[in-house]
């Protein structure tokens, strides 16, 4: 957590930046939207079940997009689903993140060539923060992807960046 300082004798006083404490709070309670589409959804379930227990990262699966910070797109996005996916993404509150889990949502996966009804990569409709390769990725891979996302959240800053529009 950013700067931990022990300048004071009272153990309850900690000095840190506002960003540091906000980011720390956010990255430890990233609520995910359970967006299980296909095979990867089973591995996503396995990640939250007994052996892997993703909930120790503060992950709570929520069914409503309004309560979520992260959308894990787990599975093949078809053209019929893509419009719905975009709408659900737009319903999420900012700041919001997207994890693309598995080859299908990264790039179309095994369906890239003849899949006339498959969207070749979810990044064609929504911006993606973390890509997890694999068909399907193991639960451990999802955990690794989750930690990468936490790193990204840790670097979030409230200060306007150079070249950024208001």
């Amino acid at each position: 957590m950013g700067l931990l300082s022990k300048q004071f004798d009272d153990g309850n006083i900690v000095l840190t930046s506002v960003e540091g404490v906000l980011n720390w709070a956010r990255l430890c309670s990233l609520w995910q939207m359970s967006f299980g589409l296909a095979c990867c959804a089973i591995e996503m379930m396995a990640a939250s079940a007994s052996h892997n227990d993703i909930m120790r990262f503060g992950v709570l699966p929520r069914p409503s997009p309004r309560q979520c910070d992260v959308m894990i797109v787990a599975g093949t996005v078809t053209l019929k689903m893509a419009t719905r996916l975009k709408r659900l993404y737009e319903q999420m509150a900012e700041p919001r993140y997207v994890v693309s889990m598995g080859s299908c949502s990264n790039c179309g996966g095994p369906y890239w060539e003849h899949g006339y009804h498959v969207l070749k990569g979810v990044d064609r409709v929504v911006p993606v923060d973390v890509y997890i390769p694999g068909c399907p990725p193991r639960p451990e891979a999802l955990l690794e992807g989750w930690m990468r996302l936490q790193e990204k959240v840790r670097d979030f800053t409230l200060v306007k960046q150079e070249g950024e529009h208001a």
Partner: peptide, 26 residues
């Protein structure tokens, strides 16, 4: 239905016989 229509039957027509096996998994 159809939100997960991944065109299995089209793939089968464009793959050789052994290549279809991984698609049956999915």
């Amino acid at each position: 239905m159809g939100y997960l229509h991944r065109c299995f039957e089209k793939h089968a027509e464009n793959m050789t016989y052994p290549q279809v096996v991984p698609y049956t998994d999915r």
